[in-house]
């Protein structure tokens, strides 16, 4: 009885020590990968920050209105945001590599799935970024054009343009990461259709006078040349 107990304990201890001997190097490897990854991520963050500072990325974003948008959302400057993003992406990648080094089968499966998914997330972020930039650019262009051509409700027009572009960008980004593919598409179609229908109704029922004025101005432009905004002035 005593022998059996000793044998079983010895076997268990041997197994345990074997497991530890087998696991410990992987654990150390994981810690090493995470620590080294952290250092590499930090170095990359500094490099990216310096590079963006050198190419005046903040000023470029300021010109497009992106910086202001980030500020409104209480986010740091674009340079800081991008360098932090690089840090976290690199470090999380190393973190996952580290976990992968433990060679735990279910975990490895999840990690490989995540890595396959990673490019899609990147593309989605890029789509969103470009979408926000485009929305601000075209929103502002619409506002300026509407003001300079004396269109009614310039700010409303500008907001509609901005809203539509951002909605389109969000839809594309969500579709890219495979989130509710059909739902997003349908939601966008409904939203877009609703906006157009709303505009049609508003313009047709509520804005009959405005529509009349616009059409009159368009078709009677030549007849009323001297009464237009700049009269007969030659600016050059």
């Amino acid at each position: 009885m005593e022998n059996i107990l000793v044998n079983s304990l010895t076997t268990t201890l041997q197994n345990l020590s074997g497991m530890i001997a087998h696991f410990l190097p992987r654990l150390i490897a994981m810690i090493a990968i995470i620590v080294i990854g952290g250092i590499i991520a930090w170095i990359l963050k500094v490099i990216v920050r310096r590079f963006l500072w050198f190419v005046k990325f903040n000023q470029i974003c300021e010109a497009t209105g992106f910086t202001q948008m980030l500020a409104k959302a209480a986010l740091p400057s674009p340079t800081e945001l991008l360098s932090r993003l690089v840090f976290w992406v690199v470090w999380v990648s190393f973190l996952l590599f580290g976990f992968n080094a433990l060679e735990i089968a279910p975990l490895q499966e999840e990690i490989s799935r995540f890595f396959l998914f990673l490019p899609q997330i990147f593309v989605a972020i890029v789509i969103l970024f470009v979408g926000v930039l485009a929305a601000n650019f075209f929103g502002r262009a619409t506002l300026l054009t509407a003001v300079n051509t004396n269109w009614p409700s310039p700010r409303l027009l500008s907001s509609i343009v901005r809203f539509l572009i951002i909605t389109l960008a969000v839809t594309m980004a969500l579709e890219r990461i495979g989130l509710g593919r059909g739902v997003v598409e349908i939601a966008f179609s409904i939203a877009f259709g609703a906006v157009m229908l709303g505009l049609a109704l508003a313009f047709g029922l509520g804005g009959r006078d405005v529509a009349r004025k616009l059409l009159e101005r368009h078709f009677l432009e030549n007849e009323e040349k001297e009464d237009d905004q700049d009269g007969g002035i030659s600016h050059l």
């Binding site: 502002r140 506002l143 003001v147 300079n148 001297e226 009464d227 237009d228 905004q229 009269g231 007969g232």
Partner: peptide, 23 residues
């Protein structure tokens, strides 16, 4: 003489300043 719709110019200036304030 030159016929100019000064009132309209003035209105467009006012609208412009109000609408483009943030810009």
């Amino acid at each position: 003489p030159l016929r100019v719709n000064r009132k309209k110019m003035c209105d467009m200036f006012r609208t412009g300043v109000a609408e483009l304030f943030s810009i």
